[in-house]
Structures are given as structure tokens and as C-alpha cells.
Amino acid sequence: MKFKTPILPGRLAALLLALLPLAARAAGELNLFGWSEYVPQPVLDGFTRETGIKVNFETYSSNEEMLAKLVAGGGRYDLVQPSDYTAEAMIRRKLLQPLDRARLTGLGNLAPAFNGRAHDPEGRYTVPYMSGSVGIVVNTEKVKVPVRGYRDVFQAAFRDRIVVVNDSRELVSWALYALGLPVNTIDAASLARARPLLAEWIKLVKVFDSDSPKTALLNGDVDLGVVWSGEAAILWRENRKFQYVLPAEGAHQFVDVLAIPAGARNVTEAHRFIDYILRPEVSRQISAAFPYTNPNLAARRLLTPDELANPASYPKGGKLESFRDIGRAAADIDRLVTDLKSAK
């Protein structure tokens, strides 16, 4: 044995590397990967103030972007925020880990309608964060004709006056609804029928924006939009001229959930964050900043009558439907939309 030789540099580096996650754990850290314009900064600050856990917040603007980054392993995320149908695919692919429901004391606050949904019937992997729909916003000062469905929006008269979310599955589903085709069983034949209609529609769109589609409407750059209901609710709050319409042909209702990826390191912190979000007063803060449909009944009781009267946040009636995981067809949709948008 050569005691003269100091520690091997390679092993020292390995040791330090091994200690790195320990250091992070001691300080308490949470790597949150969520939608942009969805998690208010005060909520993150409040969580850190109370628990000492530092939140590293990264955002995405589509389920696909989140999956691409998660699957590529570029970052280690402890908590993600997929939409229900994406969560369903992730559960099927074993990309999520089961939750320890005993650690989530606030689960009882959720409305019964948001438990046991098709994407996760036993609620083993996901907890609802916010819900909403995708509908039409009309600037009634500029658009004087009645707008009831997708075909009323995508007309030659409104060329370059339309903003839509930049989301392939959404775009294709609107064409399918307009054609009276199912949005959850998609095959080559239904895509072939949707294609020419969608090609026409895409040409009329002025802006594709999933992050903040309200901006183009607010700035007066467009007069119509097919957008997330929370964005529509903010517009209505700003100015009553922005009316929200659930498309007559049918509309997508989504439930965005919180879930822990299979490879997450800070599982305890992730559970604490979910439980924090489930608190009525915290969830209420989220509603105030991003007025989607709040699945938390206890939080809904804290909302003002004005907030509850917002037709985009809490629509009455409407033909709403959840998306389901469509497997292989998702790739065909991606390709179809890439081709059509590129052809503009």
C-alpha cells in the first residue's frame, strides 16, 4: 500500500459528485416543470417562505414540449403539469411514479367531478391542478356577426384577424368536430378528411401562440381567437367586449394535473408542493391570477361572485369532452400539422 499517494483525483471527483445530490437535498429543492402563464410567482414564493424549499421553475408551452424535454432527460424534474390525456400516455409508458396519497392531506378539497377521471381512474398518479376548456373569444366591438362555432371563426372574412393556440392536437380536433368526426379515435381516414379543411383554416390564422394568446387580442392585432379558457377569462375581466363562446360543434375540456416523473429525486418536496397547492387559500390565489376552472371546491367558496360569474372560467352548458391518449395517431397529427403549417 502506498500511503504517500494522495486520494486518486478521479475518485475524489466521483465522491464529490455523489455528495452533490445530498447537498441539494439538505437545502431542500424542487424542480418544477410547468405550463407558462399558469403558476403565479407569489404561490412559489409562499411555498419557499413556509418550507424553506427552493423551487426551480421551468416552463413549457405544450404537452409535447414537456414530453420532449422529459424523455430526452435534459433536466431532472420532480414535478410536471401535463394535461389529462398526456398524463394518461405517461402512465401507460411508466413515466410517472405513484403518489403517496397519505401525504396529501388536502385531497378532500377537490370536487368529486375531478376524481376518478378516465386518465387515472384511481387517482394513483395525478392530482388535478386546474381545469378549463378551449373555446372561441370574440371581440364584439369588431365582429358584429354571431359566432357560434369553428366554421363561424374560420371564414375568409376574418383572414388575418384570428389567433389560435399553437397546439397540433387542438387544431386537428377543431376540424374533426366541425366535420362531426370523433376526436378520440383518429385514423388515416379521419385525418384525410380533416386535412383540406384544416389547410384552409391555417391560412386564415394570423398568430399561433400558446403562451399568451390574449396578447394579440388585447393589442387589437386580431379580433377572434380559439384559446384556453383562462386566457379568455382574463380578457373578459379586462373588458366585457371579449365574449367567450363554447363551440357548438363540441369543445375540449382539459384537466391539467400535477404528477411526479419516474426519475424524480425530490419526491418528498414534490408531495409537499402538491399538498400546498391543494390548500384553499393557495388555490384561490391561482384562480385570481389565472382564472381557469378551479377543481378545488373549498377554494371556489373563497372566490368573489364576480369571479364565479366569469363565463370563461365557469361556463354554463356547452358540449364538453375530454381528450384521451390516441397513441400512434399523435405522431400522424404532428406530421399533418407540420406539413400544413409549412405549406403556408
Binding site: S62, E64, E65, L67, A68, K69, N166, S168, A331, D334, R335, V337, T338, K341, S342
Partner: peptide, 12 residues
Amino acid sequence: NVIQNQFLQARD
């Protein structure tokens, strides 16, 4: 844009 879309949106 098309290249970026293939990596983040279309995942192709």
C-alpha cells in the same frame, strides 16, 4: 422554426 418544431412540438 421547422427544425425547432420537430424537436419540441412534433417530437420528430
